[in-house]
């Protein structure tokens, strides 16, 4: 018998069992989930590259992309990944004020990114259905934008909870960590996306 000498339930000896540190699992779960999520983007990326290889001109003339604004946006988003890490460092030292400060800054940067994105959409002069390139462009950036938005919500959630005294501290900061990991993910995806959609047009 795996487990006991007899099969009578509930009389089985027990060895010492460390109470599970449950919050660790949440981070692990999130990372596992993000691996999966990344493959969805990977699917889009591969498709994008295939279309690019098959098309005569990519992007076609009527749907050229802008470069300056997205580049600024990229800088903001990449920088925000460092800012959010400062928040994480702060909370690990028990500095909830610092956490709030850096998180508010990250939210502001993320929001700027989104606004910039929307502004870009409005000024491009072509829409989702114009041609295959614009299909891909809006789908990819839009889908990423959705993730940025979710990231913002997560950070706002952290901020909301951080109002409660002692909710986050040196020991207890899983929520903060998760928001940060998610935000890095959003960032990494953006870097690939930016290279594919914008930088590749330069070659």
């Amino acid at each position: 018998m795996q487990g006991a000498i007899d099969s009578t339930p509930d009389t089985i000896a027990v060895e010492e069992f460390q109470p599970s540190e449950h919050h660790d699992f949440r981070v692990l779960g999130l990372i596992t989930f993000l691996c999966s999520e990344f493959l969805m983007f990977a699917g889009f990326f591969v498709l994008f590259l295939v279309f690019r290889a098959e098309a005569a001109a990519w992007p076609p003339e009527e749907t050229e992309v802008e470069l300056l604004l997205p580049a600024i946006n990229t800088v903001i988003l990449v920088a925000s990944s460092f800012v959010i890490h400062l928040g994480d460092t702060a909370v690990k030292q028990g500095d909830v004020k610092g956490l709030r400060k850096w998180y508010i800054l990250t939210v502001a940067m993320g929001a700027t990114f989104l606004v910039g994105q929307v502004y870009e959409y409005l000024t491009l002069g072509y829409g989702l259905t114009t041609n295959l390139f614009s299909n891909c462009f809006y789908l990819l950036t839009g889908f990423h934008g959705l993730h940025v938005f979710i990231g913002l919500l997560l950070m706002l959630g952290v901020l909301w909870r951080s109002r409660r005294e002692g909710h986050y501290g040196t020991e207890h900061h899983t929520g903060v960590e998760m928001a940060e990991i998610y935000w890095h993910f959003v960032d990494v995806v953006w870097i690939i996306l930016f290279s594919l959609i914008y930088l590749l047009t330069l070659i």
Partner: peptide, 22 residues
Amino acid sequence: LEWTTASPPIIENWNVLPVVTE
């Protein structure tokens, strides 16, 4: 291990967790 608890198992599976010896 599933056979070391009652049928059907109690809600949290075991009152005391089993030990694996083989």
